[in-house]
């Protein structure tokens, strides 16, 4: 997912407090910023929300790669609106994380230094216009799978951010699917691009849910705290079940010879992605890791004078106001 491998933190808090906190979660209470929370809960949430925020921000780049080449004015406008939404999602999520006692600059520092992760999916290249379709359809589709349940997460600001974000995500997925439809039913060249995009994005999309975590202690803790609602495998299965018929409707072939409907489990059997590749991408060895992170770092460094200029002006303006107030006394 946008937060694929979030280790939960152990808590060294007072057992009585922990039990009372757990009872609140179990009752369905929302935890608000100023309320007591276990240190592990706070740290795990910071890691998860910031990873999610970083994914939104880095996620602008693969689609930004095609905004200047969008084939019609309408497509250009839609893609611009979508990418702008993603930046907005980043903003909501950074703000939600800030309520836990970390600043946006600190989170950026963690991203730029490589200590914080973002979703592996954004380290894959967007090579043709059909990729704008595949990204909206599959990547935003997978994001929705994960984010819809997270609207019920226990941390109030995170839950509210998810509610706002989910409203926009369905437009993202629809515009992507619409591009795929045009391509899959267009000229031979367009159909070929559409199939190629599905071939390249299918397994990376399945990786978005992270490796199987059904036996993971970390996941169990996060689920008890309701900052994770479903296991990675549950979400992946749900995604495949929903996406395969959509691919069939497009007349495209999911690149998995093992894919078949299994009536016993009321779902598809499917092949796992190459998890070695996934871990390599997380380590920085995906096709675009260097470009993506490099672009973010460059944007940040090139923008230093701009941010400093605004801060300097704000300071001067505050001094002028203070000066005027003193003079008036």
């Amino acid at each position: 997912m946008y937060a694929q491998m979030v280790k939960s933190e152990a808590s060294n808090d007072d057992p009585g407090m922990l039990a009372a906190f757990q009872a609140r979660i179990d009752r369905g209470d929302k935890i608000e910023p100023k309320e007591w929370m276990p240190e592990g809960y706070r740290k795990t949430l910071i890691r998860q929300i910031s990873q999610h925020a970083h994914s939104e921000i880095v996620g602008q780049l693969p689609e930004g790669n095609w905004i200047t080449r969008a084939p019609t004015l309408q497509r250009k406008a839609i893609l611009l609106a979508k990418v702008q939404d993603e930046a907005g999602h980043g903003l909501y999520l950074y703000s939600a994380a800030e309520t836990l006692g970390i600043s946006r600059d600190e989170m950026f520092e963690q991203l730029h230094s490589g200590r914080a992760k973002y979703s592996s999916i954004f380290n894959y290249p967007t090579l043709t216009w059909a990729d704008m379709g595949a990204v909206g359809w599959l990547v935003d589709g997978a994001a929705i799978m994960n984010q819809v349940p997270l609207q019920r997460t226990s941390y109030g600001p995170y839950s509210r951010a998810m509610i706002r974000i989910c409203k926009e995500e369905s437009f993202h997925q629809r515009q992507g699917y619409h591009i795929m439809m045009k391509m899959a039913r267009g000229t031979e060249a367009q159909r070929e691009m559409a199939q190629d995009a599905l071939d390249r994005f299918w397994y990376p999309a399945l990786m978005m849910f992270g490796p199987s975590d059904k036996d993971s202690v970390h996941s169990q803790q996060s689920m008890a705290w309701k900052i994770k609602i479903n296991t990675n495998d549950e979400l992946r299965q749900r995604f495949v079940n929903e996406t395969v018929p959509q691919a069939e409707f497009l007349g495209l072939t999911v690149p998995d010879p093992e894919l078949r409907w299994n009536p016993d489990k009321e779902g598809y059997d499917f092949s796992q992605p190459d998890w070695d590749e996934f871990f390599e991408v997380l380590k920085g060895n995906g096709p675009c890791n260097r470009e993506r992170l490099g672009a973010r770092v460059r944007a940040w460094e090139d923008g230093a004078w701009f941010r400093e200029g605004l801060t300097a002006y704000a300071d001067k303006a505050a001094q002028r106001r203070a000066g005027a107030a003193t003079a008036a006394e």
Binding site: I57, G64, L80, V83, Y94, A295, F306
Partner: peptide, 8 residues
């Protein structure tokens, strides 16, 4: 797109 000096 994605390369500005601040998110805003």
């Amino acid at each position: 797109c994605g390369k500005g000096p601040a998110l805003e």
